[in-house]
Design a protein around this nucleic acid. Structure first.
Lengths: 195, 195
DNA sequence: TGGTCTATCTATAATCC
DNA sequence: TGGATTATAGATAGACC
């Protein structure tokens, strides 16, 4: 983008590498946020600059949340891989196989309870305006009466809206800061011209 | 990009949300790679789709490498924060204290923005039905149209509800666990008595 | 540094297959 | 589903302040 086509290789000039880093980092985070909001997915982005500074983005309350989920996912994969490996190398009787699956299950259930009943709540996920989204939940009037699936769904929706609210607040603050800045410049200009 | 301007909100149509996810995920990873190569930095990207599938990108040999680096970084930050905390409780002159708080502020804000004004919204938390609380805000229909005060208010309310939802989920999980436990005890008792 | 500008390049929404 | 196409929106390189 920009005036010239970009070669996919390290920018050798230090200054422009720094400038490009700053610009593209902003762009990447914006896009990460867009992906999270538009597609309702969890996104985590970690960047270590060449000076070792950390820049992070995450779509949820905290990065740890996503990293924890990653850890669990990695463990499960390792377990599955290990099982496949064992089967490949030898004859395993069905009892052993089953017990292995049983061991794995509790982990899956504790963290992926949402996916399990996903089919049930597809309609919930696909309808409505961001603020309207939760309206249908309001008639129930009471959190106490909801089941786990409903609560999880509601939680997700609330979280998405909160993200939007916060993002919008940031936008407004930036607009305001910009306005103040411009005003300052104007008043400075008029002061200096009147002196 | 593309034929129409995109609104920053969850795509409600499931099909196009999926298509967009697939396209943008590819785009985001491409850009993450470009940033890493062009600017010679470390980048890690984690995406969990709504079905719980994990997609990852990292610029180094392994993702673990970057996560490990993150862990170290986070620990250091925690140490710094803790140190600042301790100094605040000791004897510090006002100038130093202020400068410490200024340094600390960006970090705090990102994670504790809500708690800061908790006292103000006590009445909100105790009055009326938890879900009804936000109903009066819903008629506006659009986050874009709200001003800062309204947004902050809405944010607080949403957060209070979220806390309630999570609390209720915990309760339900504990109930379920207890039920399972009791069932186990019962079946054990009946087994031993029948033998 | 950090913001602005603008010509260009890139990503992608909508569409069809 | 999974590409291919195309018109556009959005990102950004280079330049200047």
């Amino acid at each position: 983008m920009g005036r010239g086509k970009v070669q996919l290789k390290r920018i050798e000039d230090k200054i422009s590498r720094q400038v490009t880093f700053s610009k593209r980092k902003g762009g990447l985070m914006k896009k990460a946020n867009e992906l999270a909001v538009l597609c309702d997915v969890e996104v985590a982005l970690l960047i270590f600059s060449d000076r070792g500074r950390l820049y992070e983005f995450c779509s949820t309350e905290s990065l740890e949340e996503i990293l924890e989920r990653y850890r669990i996912h990695a463990e499960e994969e390792a377990a599955v891989r290990k099982r496949a490996e064992q089967e490949k190398h030898g004859v395993v009787d069905h009892k052993d196989k089953q017990s292995q699956e049983l061991q794995l299950f509790p982990k899956l259930r504790s963290n992926h309870g949402i996916e399990m009943n996903l089919a049930e709540c597809t309609d919930l996920q696909t309808s409505g305006n961001p603020l309207q989204m939760i309206q249908r939940h309001l008639d129930t009037q009471n959190i106490e009466l909801k089941n786990m699936t409903e609560l999880t769904q509601l939680e997700k929706e609330m979280d998405a809206i909160l993200r939007q609210i916060r993002f919008r607040k940031t936008q407004l603050m930036m607009d305001a800061a910009k306005a103040v800045h411009e005003e300052t410049l104007l008043s400075l200009a008029s002061t200096s011209s009147s002196v």
